[in-house]
Simulated scan of single mutants.
Amino acid sequence: MVESWKYLKRRLKELKLEKRGGVVRVKISCVDICRGGPILAIMPDGIWYGGCTPAVIDRILMEHLANGKPVEEYVIASKSL
């Protein structure tokens, strides 16, 4: 979990996404779905991803945030379900 958090922080800075005003990182404890963690949620899309290793985070950043295409294989919840 710590590795993923550090990776997310570094990649957001590298991609200059933190300063755009649209990306906010929030670290919280278990929200009753810890077994699927680390968890990453994209709002306002309402898509929650599980198993977010650094490699998965990179795919989410590049495919979902940059291109608007959710990474379906890691989605654990969405507002459309």
Score class of each variant (00 low, 15 high):
residue 56 V to L: 04
residue 68 G to S: 08
residue 2 V to G: 13
residue 70 P to V: 02
residue 12 L to V: 01
residue 3 E to P: 11
residue 63 E to I: 06
residue 15 L to P: 06
residue 70 P to A: 01
residue 73 E to S: 10
residue 7 Y to R: 05
residue 25 R to I: 14
residue 25 R to K: 05
residue 39 I to R: 09
residue 38 P to R: 00
residue 30 C to P: 04
residue 16 K to L: 06
residue 79 K to P: 03
residue 2 V to H: 15
residue 75 V to W: 02
residue 61 L to M: 05
residue 50 G to E: 05
residue 65 L to T: 01
residue 51 G to E: 00
residue 66 A to D: 01
residue 43 M to K: 11
residue 71 V to C: 04
residue 13 K to D: 12
residue 50 G to L: 05
residue 31 V to K: 03
residue 3 E to Y: 10
residue 3 E to R: 15
residue 6 K to E: 13
residue 53 T to K: 09
residue 13 K to M: 09
residue 58 D to P: 02
residue 5 W to H: 13
residue 18 E to N: 08
residue 81 L to V: 10
residue 37 G to V: 10
residue 70 P to Q: 05
residue 43 M to D: 10
residue 79 K to C: 12
residue 49 Y to R: 05
residue 64 H to G: 08
residue 19 K to E: 15
residue 9 K to T: 09
residue 35 R to P: 03
residue 54 P to D: 02
residue 76 I to N: 05
residue 10 R to T: 09
residue 26 V to R: 15
residue 69 K to V: 14
residue 1 M to A: 11
residue 25 R to C: 09
residue 64 H to S: 03
residue 28 I to S: 07
residue 47 I to F: 13
residue 37 G to Q: 07
residue 41 A to F: 06
residue 72 E to Q: 10
residue 70 P to K: 05
residue 23 V to F: 11
residue 52 C to M: 06
residue 24 V to R: 09
residue 11 R to D: 04
residue 24 V to Q: 14
residue 78 S to T: 01
residue 64 H to D: 04
residue 22 G to N: 14
residue 65 L to N: 02
residue 34 C to V: 12
residue 62 M to F: 07
residue 28 I to N: 05
residue 53 T to D: 00
residue 37 G to Y: 07
residue 14 E to N: 09
residue 21 G to V: 01
residue 15 L to E: 12
residue 80 S to F: 11
residue 38 P to L: 00
residue 63 E to K: 08
residue 55 A to R: 12
residue 39 I to D: 00
residue 71 V to F: 07
residue 43 M to H: 12
residue 39 I to Y: 08
residue 1 M to T: 09
residue 80 S to L: 12
residue 46 G to F: 08
